[in-house]
Nucleic acid binder design. Sequence first.
DNA 1: CTAAATGCAAATGCTTTGCAATTCC
DNA 2: GGAATTGCAAAGCATTTGCATTTAG
Lengths: 148, 148
Amino acid sequence: MITEEDRFRDHLKKKGLKFTSERKLILKEVFSSHKHFDVEELFGRLRKKDRAISRATIYRTLPLLIESGLIREALRCRDRFYYEHVFGHPHHDHLLCIGCGKVIEFRDERLEKLQNEVCKKYGFELIEHRLGIKGYCKKCQKKISKST
Amino acid sequence: MITEEDRFRDHLKKKGLKFTSERKLILKEVFSSHKHFDVEELFGRLRKKDRAISRATIYRTLPLLIESGLIREALRCRDRFYYEHVFGHPHHDHLLCIGCGKVIEFRDERLEKLQNEVCKKYGFELIEHRLGIKGYCKKCQKKISKST
DNA sequence: CTAAATGCAAATGCTTTGCAATTCC
DNA sequence: GGAATTGCAAAGCATTTGCATTTAG
């Protein structure tokens, strides 16, 4: 069974790059939790746990993880990218609550199929797609109706 | 029949804000073409045509146009926001070509319906949704197959 | 008249980059 | 050994903001 590390090592080797201790720590930290994360958070986590790793190195490593097919940019919010796992986590879309920031992940095969159809219709070769739905989650709907 | 200007004036009045000559020019320029635009482009267009308007004013005006329901952020690409008309232009989704940057707009009722269904399932109140499909358009697919 | 708006230039905040010192293979 | 990598601090860039001046209503 292939691990994240195998995948990353393979990708680096293919590109003639090195599997450094910093890259290893970043990878480990990234896959230590399934939650979406941003650079600042990752930087903070690394500083606490293992060994401080510079932001520069993190910024240089994330694209490598993306190329390796391990993570992807999940969403952009307030000038920041948030990343999420791809490796070990099947494609899904997001419901993003405007009220509390909660993110609900979902997958609907019919949506996937329809998107393929649309691409076919336009002769478009699909590489990646992203559906984000913004609105209010159950809890926040209640809050709003109470406050008005 | 309501025009963009009516809509903008109404919104400003409601908020106790002024319909200044700068805001009028920006509105006019924004609605002079249906293409997606970014701040830099708008700034350039305004400088040429009418009267130079500072970037600061543009940055301060765009949110007002969004609140008015006249435009929206269409997509984010290379650190920049691209805006598009909402007023007079029914909701649609995007195919974005990675090769040449071309944007194809499409609308599929079945996709819209399915998204509503998903929201219902999660008790989520949909405010806005955005589907972006990245890939290669017909032309770019040909280019790639030629070059390899 | 006076609150709001403008332009400017400085500030912000995320991200990138040049460079000298270090490290993996 | 030598290319690749790192950390640092400086630079980049889109966007925001403070402030003195101007303007709409």
